[in-house]
Design a protein around this nucleic acid. Structure first.
Lengths: 345, 345
DNA sequence: TATTCGTTGGACTTAATTTGTCCCGCATAG
DNA sequence: CTATGCGGGACAAATTAAGTCCAACGAATA
């Protein structure tokens, strides 16, 4: 099939381009329906007018329905999209990337979604969707799920959907306050995810910066203790991976810390830990919650991170990180693959 | 591969069209090389200018070489052509059928949808969709549309969608009661179609079997007369074509009639008329409405019928039927084509 | 119920692309 | 040699796509 497409591309060089565009429209519509023209256009980095033409076209093809409160996929559009997404995976070689990275990074599974969240913001929702989909495979009966913060995890929460009724989901923030903006805090995401999933949640209400003394007395508090115990019993952990500099800045870290991270050449961040290129921990934010070493107890550890700019961070974290599931996007995956393939061979 | 083609057809029919064009250019070049621009254009029914653009494109792609004595395929062009030919067969199979049948049956247009409604019932909805799509091309301003009954027409009605707001659609049943079940009656379908289209409709409420006297007095009735006038002003007629035996039975016809139809070797039915293999009318159900001869007044006469079992009926009706548009499916079309091709040559 | 918000779809302008037309110079065959 | 058919240049005309603005509509909300 790949060959067929290649040949087609000789006669129609922009075939894939157009296919991609229409694919992404359908796919964003699916995850946001009903959605209006303007927000859709913004989401896709298309001008409103060209989106409009495309949308009219797709409507004429009977793939999407366009009503007074926005657009949604038709039955046919939905099934087309499903088939198409497999095809896109196939023909952009994502399977190869997935299994290649799985071997190189020595993970139990790698999932790659098409696109690059750096250039196309909507890819993050795809990332979220894929993560949720994978997560749901794991859910059986009752589960405690630990989540971290970050914009990517926010996208994951966004895409969460209720599961079957006979399962109880309990969401817990993996670590206490790390200085993020409220919408990116583990607490917030935890609550959002629980709400979308029709599940329950516990929060860790903590001040951001702690002295050692308060820290020690705080972890004696029953409210905190209870959450900590839940946390240690979590069967599933979902976390993001950040770029060290970006994270430090986003958290309004002190200039000393930023300088320290620079000196130590920190490139990655996860769970409030900072890592250098070799995956060595160079700094840890002192806060309550799951510690890196405790991760191994979980049944499923899922890292979600995309965008080519995050390739290095992912690579760093995975050097010594837990051997779980990585959900990423094409942009990050290709970058990673290209960088690591040579070392690996 | 068929999958890929189907999806591409849905997602980018315009591009596929272009591909077909380029493919045909290459293939004509191959069989005539070296060939000049003008004769090539004539050969392909393209204007010289558009051919010229295409040719320049193909040269830039390195698929054909263009020398002072004409054009010829490059190595690559030749191999591309070969690889693509299989795909094209798949792709253009229906087009060949369409234009072939158009010529053989001497119609103004033939539309063939993939599948066979005999084996796959859902193909009927495709048939309906195609009919509607074609219909909409014709709609400009106000229209009176006459429709007949039958299961196929029911499927057409099912797929009807509202058009733009500034057009008024008025649906009228083409003929009075023919003895069908209510859901297949022209009246019902007419109303259903109008509803789905946000249009208006008039009905012909008539008893099924009429004596000549009541018939004559009925057509004097103002209510009836009004509808009849509308009917005669109808710019569009959409009708089905049935198998004679099936129709007769479905209408609970008297055993004498069934026997008569058998003796006369009736094979087709449309508008309440029965036709033999040569397309001669062998019986007409006496009821009010559009008569066969009056059809020619309409701007668009669209026959919708599919399923390989209907091939003979279609062929019969089209022998002397109006020269309009035929919407059918692959099953019926292939059957028809195979049967008629030999006679035609 | 009135109002606001976000939605589509129409209308118009402007830009870009495609197509039509004409013609020139060149190679080649007769 | 000339006549024919070739590609390609040039430019106007027509068509199509895109940018922009706004009216009408409907659903949610106060």
């Amino acid at each position: 099939m790949k060959e067929l497409i290649n040949i087609q591309q000789k006669l129609l060089p922009d075939l894939i381009e157009v296919m991609r565009k229409r694919y992404s429209i359908l796919s964003v519509v699916r995850s946001h329906e009903p959605i209006g023209r303007r927000s859709l256009a913004a989401n896709l980095n298309l001008t409103e007018r060209v989106l409009r033409s495309e949308v009219t076209f797709l409507r004429d093809q009977g793939l999407l329905h366009i009503g007074s409160s926005g657009m949604s996929l038709t039955e046919e559009g939905s099934s087309t999209l499903t088939k198409l997404s497999e095809m896109m995976k196939e023909l952009s070689g994502l399977r190869v990337l997935e299994s290649g990275l799985k071997d190189i990074l020595n993970l139990s599974e790698v999932i790659v979604v098409p696109g690059d969240s750096d250039s196309d913001p909507w890819v993050k929702t795809e990332l979220g969707k894929a993560a949720i989909q994978r997560l749901k495979q794991e859910l059986k009966g009752d589960n405690v799920i630990a989540v971290t913060g970050g914009t990517t995890l926010a996208a994951v929460a966004e895409m969460m959907t209720p599961g079957s009724k006979d399962q109880e989901l309990l969401f817990v923030p993996a670590r206490g306050g790390l200085g993020e903006k409220v919408e990116n805090q583990a607490n917030t995401i935890c609550a959002a995810m629980a709400q979308k999933a029709n599940g329950h949640y516990r929060l860790l209400h903590l001040p951001d910066q702690l002295s050692k003394d308060t820290y020690l007395s705080l972890i004696q508090e029953p409210v905190i203790k209870e959450v900590m115990e839940l946390l240690h019993s979590a069967s599933i952990v979902i976390h993001g991976i950040g770029d060290a500099r970006t994270m430090a800045e986003r958290r309004n870290s002190s200039s000393e810390l930023i300088e320290k991270l620079g000196q130590e050449r920190a490139v990655a961040e996860a769970f409030g830990y900072y890592f250098d290129k070799q995956g060595k921990v160079v700094h840890r934010v002192r806060t309550i919650g799951l510690q890196l070493e405790e991760l191994q107890n979980s049944e499923l550890i899922m890292a979600v991170a995309g965008g080519s700019s995050k390739a290095q961070a992912i690579s760093s974290f995975m050097k010594h990180g837990p051997k779980g599931v990585l959900v990423t996007d094409e942009g990050a995956a290709r970058q990673l693959y290209d960088e690591l393939r040579s070392d690996y061979r």
